[in-house]
Amino acid sequence: MALAPARISMPAEAKKGEIVEIKALVRHVMETGYRTDNRGQPIPRDIIKSFTVTYAGEEVFGMELNPGVSANPYVIFTTVATETGELVFTWTDQKGAATVERKLLAVVG
């Protein structure tokens, strides 16, 4: 199953050299694998393993996620606006299925 929808909040444009804050939220159960259901059967682990962001082709943020991370991981990070380019957000779950979102950051002035 493809991952559930993700949401990204960031400015559409920034000045060269400006620090931009980027917020990313994805819906995912992040099931730890340590819990049991109401019949005592273990609930299989189902987590996102990695979250990476590239900006104009270059990786600007990378994160490894573990079972301790809550459901619907919400990440805020900053980067420096260098050139007009696309930010590609990739969440990859443990089975290798990926959710990809793209946002353009225009650098002005």
């Binding site: 559930a4 929808p5 949401r7 909040s9 917020k23 939220l25 819906r27 619907n72 919400y74």
Partner: peptide, 15 residues
């Protein structure tokens, strides 16, 4: 409206 995870459901509902 961004940090509230309930809005994830709301947006799916809109779809």
């Amino acid at each position: 409206a961004f940090a509230n995870p309930g809005v994830l459901w709301l947006e799916e509902g809109e779809r």
